[in-house]
């Protein structure tokens, strides 16, 4: 078993101090693997990923990344710690051109800027032809590519993605998720929230199921895929084990 890249211990978090959305959540994402968080609506999946990214206050518990405690770090400091976060919507700057979006993400790359940009454009050829266009003119799938390219520009070790396939055509969703799969081969750790359960389980290595802000089940994605309990959560939406 590889070292955990990201480990979350007993995290309680919420926008308001008295109103937690997550209760004592534990999660481990292994390096170079795709870990998926699934769960019914309102389970706190996005809140968890935002709490890791520093966008939702963590009231107790710890978030560690590669051995460093990053609990409650300001979101703008995350990139420096090798973490990139791709929000579900509004994840690119529409009023900036594609090139400006990339260069903004690359602004700390120094002399390597041109090299990294060239590599990213080779990775996402669809963006190459539109470098000078406003990002707002991109299609849904292309926007996700640009958002991913922006995230990769900081050369993160871990990428947090919030429902990257939401609102995309099945083909575009497939492409985005394939891309994520490909990234892990370069050693990048991916933690993603998905609402499409079968797709998520097929794609990922390890899977966590959240409901009502608490851990329910986790395990190898391949095992969960056939688990009748998993189906039950989604069919009934009911809680299985509270505070497991």
């Amino acid at each position: 078993m590889a070292d955990p890249a990201l480990s979350i211990r007993a995290v309680t978090a919420g926008y308001l101090r008295d109103l937690p959305i997550l209760f004592d959540v534990d999660l481990v994402a292994e390096a170079g693997k795709i870990t998926t968080i699934i769960g019914p609506n309102g389970a706190g999946k996005s809140t968890l990923i935002k709490a890791i990214a520093g966008l939702v206050p963590v009231t107790s518990g710890t978030v560690r990344h590669g051995g460093t405690d990053i609990t409650g770090l300001r979101p703008d400091r995350m990139a420096a710690h090798g973490i990139a976060y791709v929000p579900q919507t509004d994840n690119i700057f529409r009023s900036l051109t594609i090139r400006e979006n990339l260069d903004l993400a690359l602004r700390r790359a120094g002399l390597r800027r041109d090299a990294i940009r060239a590599r990213l454009l080779a990775q996402f050829p669809a963006l190459q032809a539109k470098l000078g266009d406003k990002a707002g003119s991109l299609s849904g799938g292309q926007r996700q590519f640009l958002a991913l390219a922006n995230a990769l520009a900081t050369e993160p070790r871990t990428i947090l993605m919030d429902e990257p396939s939401a609102g995309l055509s099945p083909r575009a969703a497939e492409e985005v998720l394939e891309m994520a799969r490909g990234l892990t081969e370069t050693g990048v750790t991916i933690l993603l929230v998905e609402q499409n359960v079968t797709q998520a389980l097929r794609l990922s290595d390890h899977c966590y199921i959240l409901a009502e802000g608490r851990n329910q089940i986790d395990g190898k994605a391949a095992d969960l895929l056939g688990d009748p309990v998993v189906a039950e959560i989604y069919l009934g939406g009911k809680r299985l084990r509270v505070g497991a």
């Binding site: 966008l55 300001r74 979101p75 703008d76 976060y85 929000p87």
Partner: peptide
């Protein structure tokens, strides 16, 4: 919010 995520 996104700018902050982008490290600004």
């Amino acid at each position: 919010a996104l700018a902050q995520i982008a490290g600004v």
